[in-house]
Nucleic acid binder design. Structure first.
Lengths: 335, 335
DNA sequence: TCATTTATTGCATTCGAAGTCATTATTACG
DNA sequence: CGTAATAATGACTTCGAATGCAATAAATGA
């Protein structure tokens, strides 16, 4: 029945007839306390409903035990799974998630203010785009950061990423089995680094394959944009043999648009591939041929890396690239 | 170029030739500081890269500015949207989100420990089940809490919820247009309060409508469980005329199962309804008749309520019930 | 049993900003 | 110009737990 004010370590100490230090030591693991006082303190602490105040602890230890997780609105549909994994895996390492959602570029200034003032131990950014000068700030403030799902060429930042080139190569090989004569590349928004990377890799590979008949359209990763792009295209052009989408959601949109408004059969008349391996890409009605990102391993890599840098502030930046798995769905004809 | 240690208000004060109090005042809005010192302090602060330490502030003000958001694994597919809304709306009210994911009942003890130690200003629980004795703890610790998407009968807790009864009534009325002879109710998991509520309401209403041929199956809110339940059922029984699913994801599973393995046409031979109005329920290939939850308004209600209780600790508990909108899709035949 | 090592304990200080209060600088006004 | 009212400022204390250090108790060995 705690009346009105919070119970502090002093209150417990007084009640248990020990010093405040003793109480503190009982609640810190691995410190020298006799069995007798430990029990005595624990008993009174429980009785009084005492819980150590993490804020005070943070102030003195200079470790907040919190990791800022930044979710950009450009993160695609697999972000809920990623976020849930991040939370779980950080919890297992005794870190809490301070969540920030980033809507537009405007919010970045404020976001960074928050990050510095909240003294987070580290930062994980999901698919967010930061200028390199922003990234430099992390170093200045000595806050370790890991970029999830982003490749930074200059290699001075910690990144975890799925191997886009390898994945897209596999997808294109799968498409090539049917020897398509025309390609439509459905890119994500140009303000998404991942989208740009996927598009450029796709175009490069297609060029290397000697494909001439390649066109690019720009969506925004959403279902509707997948539909709209395809509808738009078919108004003026004939159907492409293969559609390469930068993510599964747009691929689903493409499939639905074709189904509703056009007399084209997938995969017989047209092939569609996606990327990510989100849950709905496996649904019976779609069964998209795609690359499934190894989310759990990616997150594990990100968390491991972040904690390494938190514990060891001078470990060098690192880029980990994991390989996704090709899912042979039913949106590409199998000869 | 901050060398190694963090810049504190004292450092800025010394550099700017003022007292620490002055620096503090500059960074607190609405306090009496002359234009001259304000500028002087701001200048040196910027030069030195000073940011107020939120941890220290929390300690003295006894306000962490953080709200714990608990996401239960039982939260269904619309939780990413909810979470994103929560984060946005709390940010607008100058609160940060400390995210906790709750996997199983085991984690609850630990979760509550964390909540108390981190001195959060309030808690929003998404679709989580807590024993009433747990809820009492919030009161003891004087931490305001709002349960999202949960109805608690005893009314001593703040809750925000979609009007299940009204919604389900509309869905059943929609089904009734085809005068179905048999109903299959596909419930969510029994350890989810929302699932139980939706199921019981459904059964009550069906009984009041005088329907005799009603059967219940239990899934776990997932796509696969929707498929499995229906497959299982059809092995031994004939197809029901109407399937009432506790959420959209299972409804999608039901539709896909029918499409793949059975010669039954939806909606001509069988009607299916869902609940939630998740994005994929609108997709062309499904177009489920469902109730769309007013997520933004629900979250706004939750956030408003929480902040009201944070600012005014003796305001009485409140239950807000918002009404969802019936989406007339294509999974129920329209006479 | 006594000296010596080792395990416990308490005191006092620290973390960094905020707020109280008394003091000083400004302004307003008769 | 003097006085009252107001604004601005700084010294000092506070929040609650952690920790270095010194003091004390327990354990070990001779």
């Amino acid at each position: 029945m705690s009346k009105n004010k919070k119970v502090t370590s002093y209150d417990v100490a007084r009640e248990a007839g020990v010093s405040q230090s003793a109480v503190s030591r009982v609640f810190r693991p691995g410190l020298s306390v006799s069995q007798k006082t430990r029990e005595k303190v624990m008993a009174t602490a429980n009785k009084m409903g005492y819980r150590p105040n993490a804020i005070a602890r943070m102030l003195i230890t200079k470790q907040s035990g919190m990791v800022a997780v930044i979710v950009s609105s450009r993160a695609n549909e697999n972000y809920p799974e990623v976020l849930s994994q991040v939370s779980k895996q950080l919890a297992a390492r005794n870190k809490r998630v301070l969540l920030f959602t980033l809507d537009d570029a405007d919010g970045v200034d404020d976001l960074f203010e928050q990050i510095w003032t909240f003294q987070v131990d580290g930062v994980i950014a999901l698919a967010a785009h930061f200028e390199s000068q922003r990234l430099a700030q992390f170093e200045q403030h000595k806050v370790p950061v890991v970029l999830y799902n982003r490749n930074v060429p200059d290699a001075s930042t910690n990144t975890v990423c799925c191997n886009h080139e390898h994945g897209i190569k596999q997808l294109l090989a799968e498409l090539k089995l049917n020897n398509p004569q025309s390609y439509l590349v459905l890119s994500g928004p140009t303000d998404s680094d991942v989208a740009n990377e996927r598009r450029e890799i796709t175009l490069d590979l297609l060029e290397k394959m000697g494909e001439k008949n390649v066109h690019v359209l720009y969506g925004d990763y959403t279902y509707q944009s997948g539909r709209d792009c395809l509808a738009q295209w078919l108004k003026k052009h004939s159907a492409p043999d293969a559609v390469v989408c930068s993510n599964d959601t747009m691929a689903i949109g493409v499939i639905d648009e074709i189904r509703e408004n056009h007399n084209i059969h997938i995969p017989n008349d047209m092939s569609v591939v996606g990327f990510d391996g989100i849950a709905s890409s496996f649904w019976q009605s779609y069964q998209i041929t795609t690359i499934k990102q190894p989310v759990e391993q990616l997150v594990k890599a990100a968390v491991d890396m972040l904690l390494e840098h938190i514990e060891n502030s001078d470990s060098p930046p690192e880029a980990r690239v994991l390989t996704g798995t090709l899912i042979k769905g039913n949106s590409v004809k199998r000869p």
